[in-house]
């Protein structure tokens, strides 16, 4: 990690409206280096929108986002440069179907970071081996299962050597038997002190891996706590009713 910023990411009063519909009503959140923050909440609560605001896939209509101390919502900022340090994993994987796995992994590091193709290739292969997919380097995305695709998508983001990884419901589109293999990769990442912000419905993962769990509802950050407190003694009424529905 080059330099240390504390916090690494700081969301200050982030608002987002689509037309008259205000999806985010002023969200504040600090994420420190090496921290795993899990965001949960009912669908439509704005948690995915908030995550997508962090790397400006959605442009906030209000508030600021500081990344490494710099306000990236400033129009003068070159967001492409910052995004290279913010890996993102999508619900629907979004692998590039016209390229094989290795090309998916090496394209951005070679084109954007000017790294040598051999170096990136070696790095990609070592990461592939770690997620157990070294033998699929030449495969095309259409030949992979959902769980394999998502592991590749995680590796694709990691090949850029990001400072933070954003996960947008990474297991929601998977068949149940494939959820575990993706969560395992994410757990390993957390153990290596990767900074992670994860939007998910996997309560077990949140309880076990997160340093902090955040509950969002109707565009508001309702509660923020350690997993023990969050699940053990939730204070907010809406959170209590949400947990009673999802933790059966």
């Amino acid at each position: 990690m080059n330099g240390s910023y504390d916090p690494l990411i700081q969301a200050i009063g982030v608002r987002k409206s689509f037309g008259d519909n205000e999806v985010l009503k002023g969200i504040d959140l600090d994420v420190r280096q090496g921290e795993v923050v899990v965001i949960i909440g009912p669908s439509g609560s704005g948690k995915s929108t908030f995550l997508r605001c962090l790397n400006l896939l959605e442009v906030p209509t209000g508030g600021k986002i500081l990344f490494e101390g710099e306000d990236i919502t400033d129009r003068k900022v070159n967001i492409d440069r910052h995004r290279q340090k913010m890996g993102m994993v999508f619900q629907h994987f979004n692998l590039f179907p016209h390229m094989n796995v290795l090309k998916n992994l090496t394209l951005a590091p070679v084109k954007l970071q000017g790294r040598k193709p051999e170096e990136v290739r070696e790095y990609a292969m070592s990461l592939l081996a770690r997620v157990g997919l070294a033998d699929r380097a030449d495969a095309y995305p259409s030949q992979l299962s959902g769980g394999q695709k998502q592991r590749i998508a995680i590796v694709r983001a990691l090949c850029m050597r990001p400072e933070v990884m954003l996960f947008d419901e990474p297991t929601s589109a998977l068949d149940p038997e494939m959820v575990g293999e993706v969560l395992n990769v994410m757990r390993d990442l957390a153990n290596e002190k990767m900074t992670m912000i994860v939007v998910t419905h996997e309560m077990g993962f949140a309880r076990e891996v997160a340093n902090r769990v955040v509950f969002m509802d109707e565009g508001v950050l309702v509660e923020e706590n350690t997993p023990e407190e969050f699940f053990g003694s939730p204070k907010n009424e809406r959170l209590r009713s949400f947990l009673s529905k999802v933790l059966v």
């Binding site: 492409d80 995004r83 913010m86 890996g87 629907h92 979004n94 692998l95 951005a108 954007l112 850029m160």
Partner: peptide, 14 residues
């Protein structure tokens, strides 16, 4: 799919 554009942009491509 718009996801292809988002994936590209999220990696840092213009």
């Amino acid at each position: 799919d718009i996801g292809q554009l988002e994936a590209g942009r999220s990696l840092g491509f213009s």
